[in-house]
Amino acid sequence: ARVPCVECHIGPGASFWVKSKIDGIRQVVAVITNSYTKPIETPVFNLRPAQQTCEECHWPRQFYGEKLVTRTYYRTDEENSPWTINLLVKIGGGNPRTGRLEGIHWHMLQENKVEYVCTDRKRQEIPWLRVTKPDGSVEVYSDGDYEMPDTSQPDVQLRTFDCMDCHNRPSHQFLPPATAMNLAISKKEISRELPYIRQVGLDVLNKEYTDSAQAYDGIAYGIKTYYEKEYPEVFKTKQAEINQAIATLRRIYSQNFFPEMKTDYRARTNNLSHFTNNGCFRCHDGEMATKDGKMLPRDCTTCHIIVAQGPSENVEDLESNIAGLEFHHPEDIDEAWREALCTECHTPDQGY
Protein backbone atom coordinates (compact mmCIF):
# COMPACT_ATOMS: atom_id res chain seq x y z
CA ALA A 1 0.00 0.00 0.00
CA ARG A 2 1.24 3.48 -0.80
CA VAL A 3 0.57 5.13 2.52
CA PRO A 4 2.28 8.52 2.97
CA CYS A 5 4.71 8.65 5.90
CA VAL A 6 2.71 11.42 7.57
CA GLU A 7 -0.38 9.20 7.80
CA CYS A 8 1.33 7.24 10.59
CA HIS A 9 3.98 9.62 11.88
CA ILE A 10 1.79 12.74 12.09
CA GLY A 11 -1.86 12.81 13.08
CA PRO A 12 -4.64 14.77 11.36
CA GLY A 13 -5.61 18.33 12.19
CA ALA A 14 -3.95 21.53 13.33
CA SER A 15 -2.85 20.27 16.74
CA PHE A 16 -0.77 17.43 15.29
CA TRP A 17 0.63 19.78 12.63
CA VAL A 18 1.84 22.21 15.31
CA LYS A 19 3.22 19.38 17.44
CA SER A 20 5.16 17.96 14.49
CA LYS A 21 6.73 21.34 13.71
CA ILE A 22 7.81 21.87 17.31
CA ASP A 23 9.26 18.37 17.47
CA GLY A 24 10.98 19.03 14.14
CA ILE A 25 13.00 21.84 15.73
CA ARG A 26 14.44 19.36 18.22
CA GLN A 27 15.34 17.01 15.40
CA VAL A 28 17.02 19.73 13.34
CA VAL A 29 19.14 20.74 16.33
CA ALA A 30 20.08 17.09 16.93
CA VAL A 31 21.20 16.69 13.32
CA ILE A 32 23.21 19.93 13.29
CA THR A 33 24.96 19.09 16.55
CA ASN A 34 25.19 15.37 15.77
CA SER A 35 23.71 14.66 19.20
CA TYR A 36 21.14 12.02 18.30
CA THR A 37 21.63 8.40 19.34
CA LYS A 38 23.02 5.82 16.95
CA PRO A 39 21.06 3.69 16.42
CA ILE A 40 17.85 5.66 16.93
CA GLU A 41 16.25 4.15 20.01
CA THR A 42 13.25 1.90 19.55
CA PRO A 43 10.48 1.33 20.35
CA VAL A 44 9.20 4.89 20.06
CA PHE A 45 7.42 5.45 23.34
CA ASN A 46 5.36 8.43 22.20
CA LEU A 47 4.17 6.74 19.03
CA ARG A 48 0.54 7.39 18.20
CA PRO A 49 -1.72 4.52 19.35
CA ALA A 50 -2.38 1.72 16.88
CA GLN A 51 -6.08 2.60 17.09
CA GLN A 52 -5.25 5.90 15.36
CA THR A 53 -2.86 4.44 12.78
CA CYS A 54 -2.99 0.73 11.89
CA GLU A 55 -6.66 0.30 12.73
CA GLU A 56 -7.75 3.11 10.43
CA CYS A 57 -7.41 0.54 7.64
CA HIS A 58 -6.88 -2.80 9.40
CA TRP A 59 -9.90 -2.81 11.68
CA PRO A 60 -9.83 -5.45 14.44
CA ARG A 61 -13.21 -6.97 13.62
CA GLN A 62 -12.10 -7.97 10.12
CA PHE A 63 -11.89 -11.76 9.77
CA TYR A 64 -8.87 -12.91 7.77
CA GLY A 65 -9.20 -16.68 8.08
CA GLU A 66 -6.16 -18.74 7.13
CA LYS A 67 -3.34 -17.71 4.83
CA LEU A 68 -1.15 -20.14 2.87
CA VAL A 69 2.53 -19.25 3.27
CA THR A 70 5.42 -20.94 1.47
CA ARG A 71 8.97 -20.64 2.77
CA THR A 72 12.07 -22.17 1.21
CA TYR A 73 15.18 -22.32 3.35
CA TYR A 74 18.68 -23.34 2.32
CA ARG A 75 21.06 -25.29 4.49
CA THR A 76 24.68 -24.37 5.06
CA ASP A 77 26.03 -27.47 3.34
CA GLU A 78 28.09 -27.72 0.17
CA GLU A 79 25.00 -28.11 -2.04
CA ASN A 80 23.04 -25.31 -0.34
CA SER A 81 20.27 -27.89 -0.04
CA PRO A 82 16.69 -26.56 -0.01
CA TRP A 83 13.98 -27.28 2.52
CA THR A 84 10.49 -25.99 1.78
CA ILE A 85 7.58 -25.74 4.15
CA ASN A 86 3.96 -24.77 3.43
CA LEU A 87 1.98 -23.37 6.33
CA LEU A 88 -1.65 -22.47 6.79
CA VAL A 89 -1.29 -19.52 9.13
CA LYS A 90 -4.35 -19.01 11.31
CA ILE A 91 -4.62 -15.23 11.17
CA GLY A 92 -8.24 -15.40 12.25
CA GLY A 93 -10.19 -12.65 13.96
CA GLY A 94 -13.88 -12.59 14.76
CA ASN A 95 -15.42 -15.30 12.58
CA PRO A 96 -18.72 -13.94 11.18
CA ARG A 97 -20.03 -17.45 10.46
CA THR A 98 -19.49 -18.99 13.87
CA GLY A 99 -19.16 -15.96 16.12
CA ARG A 100 -15.95 -17.43 17.51
CA LEU A 101 -12.91 -15.33 18.34
CA GLU A 102 -10.01 -17.27 16.90
CA GLY A 103 -6.55 -17.26 15.39
CA ILE A 104 -3.56 -15.03 15.95
CA HIS A 105 -5.67 -11.88 15.77
CA TRP A 106 -7.55 -13.11 18.83
CA HIS A 107 -5.08 -10.92 20.72
CA MET A 108 -6.35 -7.81 18.96
CA LEU A 109 -10.11 -8.22 19.17
CA GLN A 110 -11.90 -5.54 21.16
CA GLU A 111 -13.73 -8.20 23.16
CA ASN A 112 -10.39 -9.28 24.65
CA LYS A 113 -7.91 -7.21 26.59
CA VAL A 114 -4.32 -8.37 26.99
CA GLU A 115 -1.99 -6.43 29.26
CA TYR A 116 1.62 -7.26 30.01
CA VAL A 117 4.63 -6.12 31.97
CA CYS A 118 8.03 -5.95 30.31
CA THR A 119 11.23 -5.53 32.26
CA ASP A 120 13.35 -4.06 29.47
CA ARG A 121 12.97 -1.05 27.19
CA LYS A 122 12.92 -3.22 24.06
CA ARG A 123 9.80 -5.10 25.27
CA GLN A 124 11.53 -8.44 24.84
CA GLU A 125 11.40 -9.69 28.44
CA ILE A 126 7.78 -10.34 29.46
CA PRO A 127 7.41 -12.15 32.79
CA TRP A 128 3.76 -11.24 33.55
CA LEU A 129 0.52 -10.78 31.63
CA ARG A 130 -3.19 -10.43 32.30
CA VAL A 131 -6.04 -11.48 30.00
CA THR A 132 -9.55 -10.05 30.41
CA LYS A 133 -12.09 -12.08 28.42
CA PRO A 134 -15.45 -11.00 26.94
CA ASP A 135 -17.37 -12.39 29.94
CA GLY A 136 -15.28 -10.26 32.31
CA SER A 137 -13.23 -13.15 33.70
CA VAL A 138 -9.54 -12.47 34.27
CA GLU A 139 -6.56 -14.79 33.96
CA VAL A 140 -3.11 -13.79 35.17
CA TYR A 141 -0.06 -15.59 33.81
CA SER A 142 3.46 -15.25 35.10
CA ASP A 143 6.87 -16.75 34.52
CA GLY A 144 7.57 -18.74 37.68
CA ASP A 145 6.81 -16.88 40.90
CA TYR A 146 7.02 -13.43 39.34
CA GLU A 147 4.59 -11.10 41.09
CA MET A 148 2.86 -8.07 39.62
CA PRO A 149 5.41 -5.26 40.05
CA ASP A 150 4.84 -1.71 41.14
CA THR A 151 3.89 0.04 37.90
CA SER A 152 4.57 3.45 39.46
CA GLN A 153 8.27 2.70 39.12
CA PRO A 154 9.78 4.35 36.01
CA ASP A 155 11.50 1.17 34.84
CA VAL A 156 8.28 -0.90 34.86
CA GLN A 157 5.96 -0.79 31.85
CA LEU A 158 2.37 -2.01 32.02
CA ARG A 159 1.22 -2.04 28.42
CA THR A 160 -2.02 -2.96 26.70
CA PHE A 161 -1.30 -5.28 23.79
CA ASP A 162 -1.85 -3.77 20.34
CA CYS A 163 -0.78 -4.23 16.70
CA MET A 164 2.73 -2.91 17.27
CA ASP A 165 3.59 -5.60 19.80
CA CYS A 166 3.87 -8.14 16.96
CA HIS A 167 4.04 -5.91 13.89
CA ASN A 168 6.78 -3.75 15.36
CA ARG A 169 8.45 -3.40 11.96
CA PRO A 170 5.55 -2.83 9.55
CA SER A 171 7.96 -0.78 7.45
CA HIS A 172 11.67 0.09 7.59
CA GLN A 173 12.50 -3.61 7.77
CA PHE A 174 16.07 -4.78 8.24
CA LEU A 175 16.27 -8.39 7.10
CA PRO A 176 18.61 -10.78 8.91
CA PRO A 177 21.29 -12.12 6.53
CA ALA A 178 19.80 -15.63 6.50
CA THR A 179 16.38 -14.36 5.46
CA ALA A 180 17.86 -12.19 2.73
CA MET A 181 20.06 -15.06 1.50
CA ASN A 182 17.11 -17.47 1.33
CA LEU A 183 15.14 -14.98 -0.75
CA ALA A 184 18.06 -14.29 -3.09
CA ILE A 185 18.77 -17.98 -3.70
CA SER A 186 15.06 -18.68 -4.22
CA LYS A 187 14.92 -15.96 -6.89
CA LYS A 188 18.10 -17.32 -8.57
CA GLU A 189 19.92 -14.07 -7.83
CA ILE A 190 22.58 -16.19 -6.14
CA SER A 191 23.44 -19.53 -7.72
CA ARG A 192 23.17 -22.71 -5.68
CA GLU A 193 25.94 -24.10 -7.90
CA LEU A 194 28.47 -22.13 -5.86
CA PRO A 195 29.52 -24.51 -3.04
CA TYR A 196 28.70 -23.27 0.45
CA ILE A 197 27.56 -19.92 -0.92
CA ARG A 198 24.92 -19.60 1.77
CA GLN A 199 27.44 -19.95 4.58
CA VAL A 200 30.04 -17.78 2.87
CA GLY A 201 27.40 -15.13 2.19
CA LEU A 202 26.34 -15.13 5.84
CA ASP A 203 29.96 -14.76 6.91
CA VAL A 204 30.68 -11.69 4.77
CA LEU A 205 27.36 -10.01 5.62
CA ASN A 206 27.82 -10.51 9.36
CA LYS A 207 31.31 -9.03 9.53
CA GLU A 208 31.71 -5.70 11.27
CA TYR A 209 32.43 -2.84 8.85
CA THR A 210 33.02 0.82 9.64
CA ASP A 211 31.14 2.09 6.60
CA SER A 212 29.38 0.88 3.47
CA ALA A 213 32.40 1.36 1.21
CA GLN A 214 34.48 -0.94 3.38
CA ALA A 215 31.61 -3.44 3.40
CA TYR A 216 31.37 -3.54 -0.41
CA ASP A 217 35.11 -4.15 -0.67
CA GLY A 218 34.99 -6.75 2.11
CA ILE A 219 32.14 -8.66 0.47
CA ALA A 220 33.96 -8.88 -2.86
CA TYR A 221 37.25 -9.82 -1.21
CA GLY A 222 35.63 -12.45 1.02
CA ILE A 223 33.75 -14.20 -1.79
CA LYS A 224 36.61 -14.17 -4.30
CA THR A 225 39.23 -15.23 -1.77
CA TYR A 226 37.12 -18.14 -0.54
CA TYR A 227 36.53 -19.67 -3.97
CA GLU A 228 40.03 -18.96 -5.23
CA LYS A 229 41.47 -20.80 -2.23
CA GLU A 230 38.91 -23.54 -1.50
CA TYR A 231 37.45 -24.19 -4.96
CA PRO A 232 39.95 -23.00 -7.60
CA GLU A 233 38.13 -24.81 -10.42
CA VAL A 234 34.86 -23.13 -9.49
CA PHE A 235 36.70 -19.81 -9.32
CA LYS A 236 37.94 -20.31 -12.89
CA THR A 237 34.75 -21.61 -14.48
CA LYS A 238 32.00 -19.73 -12.65
CA GLN A 239 33.17 -16.13 -12.67
CA ALA A 240 29.75 -14.92 -13.85
CA GLU A 241 27.98 -16.62 -10.93
CA ILE A 242 30.57 -15.32 -8.46
CA ASN A 243 30.24 -11.75 -9.73
CA GLN A 244 26.45 -11.99 -9.62
CA ALA A 245 26.62 -13.26 -6.03
CA ILE A 246 28.88 -10.35 -5.07
CA ALA A 247 26.51 -7.84 -6.67
CA THR A 248 23.51 -9.38 -4.90
CA LEU A 249 25.26 -9.48 -1.53
CA ARG A 250 26.24 -5.84 -1.92
CA ARG A 251 22.61 -4.97 -2.68
CA ILE A 252 21.44 -6.95 0.38
CA TYR A 253 23.95 -5.07 2.49
CA SER A 254 22.95 -1.66 1.10
CA GLN A 255 19.27 -2.29 1.88
CA ASN A 256 19.63 -3.79 5.35
CA PHE A 257 22.90 -2.62 6.93
CA PHE A 258 23.74 0.97 7.83
CA PRO A 259 27.04 0.92 9.76
CA GLU A 260 27.28 4.70 9.96
CA MET A 261 24.01 4.65 11.93
CA LYS A 262 24.86 1.39 13.74
CA THR A 263 21.58 0.04 12.42
CA ASP A 264 20.81 -3.44 11.11
CA TYR A 265 18.85 -6.52 12.16
CA ARG A 266 20.78 -6.67 15.44
CA ALA A 267 19.48 -3.26 16.48
CA ARG A 268 16.00 -3.75 15.01
CA THR A 269 14.47 -6.92 16.43
CA ASN A 270 11.41 -8.13 14.52
CA ASN A 271 8.70 -9.61 16.77
CA LEU A 272 6.68 -11.14 13.93
CA SER A 273 7.14 -14.92 14.07
CA HIS A 274 9.45 -16.82 16.40
CA PHE A 275 12.18 -18.25 14.21
CA THR A 276 15.21 -16.05 14.71
CA ASN A 277 13.82 -13.65 17.32
CA ASN A 278 11.68 -14.73 20.23
CA GLY A 279 8.63 -12.83 19.00
CA CYS A 280 5.69 -15.04 20.01
CA PHE A 281 7.93 -16.87 22.50
CA ARG A 282 8.20 -13.73 24.61
CA CYS A 283 4.94 -14.96 26.15
CA HIS A 284 4.34 -18.40 24.63
CA ASP A 285 7.60 -19.87 25.92
CA GLY A 286 6.21 -22.83 27.84
CA GLU A 287 6.89 -21.13 31.17
CA MET A 288 3.91 -18.78 31.53
CA ALA A 289 1.20 -20.20 33.79
CA THR A 290 -1.58 -19.15 36.14
CA LYS A 291 -1.31 -19.88 39.85
CA ASP A 292 -3.53 -22.94 39.41
CA GLY A 293 -1.23 -24.34 36.72
CA LYS A 294 -2.99 -23.39 33.47
CA MET A 295 -0.26 -22.94 30.85
CA LEU A 296 -0.23 -20.36 28.11
CA PRO A 297 -0.39 -22.51 24.95
CA ARG A 298 2.79 -23.20 22.99
CA ASP A 299 1.51 -25.90 20.66
CA CYS A 300 2.57 -25.27 17.05
CA THR A 301 -0.93 -25.91 15.68
CA THR A 302 -2.40 -23.08 17.76
CA CYS A 303 -1.24 -20.61 15.12
CA HIS A 304 -0.39 -22.63 12.02
CA ILE A 305 -0.73 -26.02 10.33
CA ILE A 306 2.00 -27.58 8.18
CA VAL A 307 0.38 -28.81 4.97
CA ALA A 308 3.56 -29.66 3.04
CA GLN A 309 7.28 -29.98 3.79
CA GLY A 310 10.40 -31.55 2.41
CA PRO A 311 13.83 -31.22 0.75
CA SER A 312 12.85 -29.55 -2.51
CA GLU A 313 12.19 -26.12 -4.00
CA ASN A 314 9.15 -27.49 -5.83
CA VAL A 315 5.94 -27.72 -3.83
CA GLU A 316 4.79 -30.63 -6.01
CA ASP A 317 7.65 -32.77 -4.69
CA LEU A 318 6.83 -32.29 -1.02
CA GLU A 319 5.09 -34.58 1.41
CA SER A 320 1.67 -33.01 1.82
CA ASN A 321 -1.58 -33.37 3.73
CA ILE A 322 -4.22 -30.65 3.89
CA ALA A 323 -5.27 -31.94 7.32
CA GLY A 324 -1.80 -31.17 8.63
CA LEU A 325 1.58 -32.83 9.10
CA GLU A 326 3.75 -33.20 12.16
CA PHE A 327 6.80 -30.98 11.87
CA HIS A 328 9.89 -32.73 10.55
CA HIS A 329 13.19 -31.02 11.29
CA PRO A 330 15.64 -30.99 8.34
CA GLU A 331 18.41 -32.16 10.67
CA ASP A 332 18.12 -35.24 12.85
CA ILE A 333 17.68 -33.70 16.29
CA ASP A 334 15.32 -36.42 17.51
CA GLU A 335 12.60 -34.91 19.74
CA ALA A 336 14.56 -31.84 20.83
CA TRP A 337 12.41 -29.52 18.72
CA ARG A 338 9.39 -30.31 20.89
CA GLU A 339 10.94 -28.79 24.00
CA ALA A 340 13.52 -26.25 22.85
CA LEU A 341 12.62 -22.84 21.47
CA CYS A 342 13.63 -22.34 17.83
CA THR A 343 15.72 -19.36 18.89
CA GLU A 344 17.93 -21.51 21.11
CA CYS A 345 19.62 -22.72 17.92
CA HIS A 346 18.44 -20.38 15.17
CA THR A 347 20.16 -17.10 15.97
CA PRO A 348 19.43 -14.02 13.83
CA ASP A 349 22.90 -14.03 12.26
CA GLN A 350 22.74 -17.65 11.04
CA GLY A 351 19.02 -17.92 10.53
CA TYR A 352 17.32 -20.11 8.89
Rank of each mutant, 00 (worst) to 15 (best):
E260T: 13
Y74R: 07
P297E: 14
K133H: 12
A289K: 15
H105W: 09
A323D: 15
R192W: 03
G222M: 05
G293F: 10
H172R: 13
G218Y: 00
R123P: 02
H304P: 12
G13N: 02
G103V: 00
E331W: 05
A180M: 07
P43N: 04
P49W: 01
H9I: 01
S15F: 14
K207I: 04
G65S: 04
I85K: 04
P149E: 01
G11S: 08
K67H: 14
L109Y: 08
F258P: 05
A308F: 03
E189R: 11
K21N: 14
H329W: 08
Q214G: 12
N80R: 04
G99C: 00
E287C: 06
L205D: 06
L129P: 07
G13V: 00
N112T: 03
F257C: 13
D264S: 14
L68R: 10
F45E: 12
Q124T: 09
N95I: 05
S171I: 03
L249D: 05
A184T: 02
Y116D: 04
N278A: 09
T301M: 07
E230A: 11
Y36V: 03
M164S: 15
K113N: 08
H58L: 08
I40N: 12
E233Q: 12
H105E: 15
S254D: 12
K187G: 05
T343E: 05
Q173M: 11
P348M: 03
A50V: 02
L249N: 07
H328G: 08
Y74I: 01
A245L: 01
Y216K: 15
H105K: 13
I104E: 14
R61T: 15
A308G: 13
C118L: 05
A215W: 06
Q110K: 11
D317L: 01
H284R: 06
D145F: 07
Q199V: 00
R75C: 02
T160P: 00
T76E: 15
K262C: 11
T132R: 08
C280V: 04
I126P: 12
T98C: 03
P82H: 02
L175N: 11
S81L: 03
V140K: 03
C283P: 06
W59H: 14
S81I: 04
N278P: 02
L175I: 05
P195Y: 06
Y227C: 01
E313M: 10
H107P: 05
I333E: 02
K224Y: 09
R130C: 13
Y231A: 05
E125M: 04
D165Q: 01
K238T: 06
R26E: 13
P154S: 12
D334V: 15
A308R: 04
T53P: 06
M261F: 08
M295R: 11
R282A: 04
C283Y: 01
C54Q: 00
N256M: 01
H105Y: 13
K291E: 12
T132L: 10
R71M: 11
Q153I: 00
T151E: 14
E335M: 10
S273W: 08
V156M: 12
T37S: 15
E7D: 13
Y196W: 09
Q255P: 03
